[in-house]
Simulated assay, not measured.
Amino acid sequence: MKRTICGVAAALALAGCGQNSETSGQPGASAEARALSVVSQVQTILGGVGSDTTVSAPRVIPGGFSSEAIAADPGAYRLMQVNALGLVEPGRIIQENGDEVTLALQSGPTAAYDGGILVATRGFGDDLITMDSAGVLEALRAGGGTVSRRMETLDAQDQVLTSSFSCTITSAGQETVNLGLREATLNRFDEKCRSQALIFDNIYWLDGSGQIVASRQYVSPTVAYLRSNRL
């Protein structure tokens, strides 16, 4: 499993750095061509995962995840990663209402975002039922701040547990981030959330217009963090 994840990361790094038309010496290379290349590499590597790993076979959702579909509309897809579960795969937008976006991973789980802030997941087993997003994006765009957030999860008896967090958002300066298809210099912000029973740290990378381009956000003790990159 560790070798597989490293192999995917290597493929993404090569695709992100080596196939950018601004750096590869191939001015005719389009975003669609780069998308097709990186998706093909990821699918090739994941397709070779042996039966002794814990990665399940992808369940293709109608409208799905072919290389041609991703290449035709890369903006509708994200690169999703959950290290704790050994997942590195595309996610597709299946519902969009203004800033509210729901993504379906190729293997089936879904993740809902509000303005780029993770607010719920389904299908991972140990899911985030709901998480308040109020004030987070505003604090990010303001350069930092403190917000109160509320999280709902399920306990072992499927009872809803509600936890309240005090979260501090601070700027960590600019950082060059490999997004899979490209590298970008983005503004990094760290969010440190604390309750009496739980501590977690989210990371957000924003572009110059204040849009969240990539993030690593907490889901649950079993899933840990969900990473999402715009292609």
Rank of each mutant, 00 (worst) to 15 (best):
R3V: 08
V8E: 10
A9F: 07
A9N: 12
G16S: 14
G16R: 13
N20I: 05
N20P: 01
T23L: 07
S24A: 14
G25C: 01
G28S: 08
A29G: 00
S37V: 00
I45R: 07
S51H: 12
S51E: 11
D52I: 02
D52S: 09
T54M: 07
P62D: 08
G63N: 08
G64L: 10
S66C: 04
S67W: 00
A71P: 04
A72P: 05
R78A: 14
N83G: 09
G86Y: 13
P90E: 06
E100M: 03
E100N: 12
T102F: 03
A104F: 04
Q106N: 04
T110F: 05
D114Q: 15
G115L: 00
G116T: 09
V119E: 03
T121G: 11
F124L: 11
T130L: 06
D132T: 07
S133Q: 08
A134I: 04
V136C: 11
V136N: 06
L137E: 03
E138L: 01
G144H: 12
T146V: 15
R149E: 08
Q157D: 14
L161G: 12
F165S: 07
E175F: 04
E183V: 00
A184D: 03
L186F: 07
R188N: 03
D190K: 07
K192H: 02
C193S: 02
R194D: 11
Q196T: 13
A197E: 13
L198E: 11
I203N: 05
D207Y: 09
V213P: 00
Y218C: 05
V219K: 13
P221F: 11
Y225H: 14
L226S: 07
R227S: 13
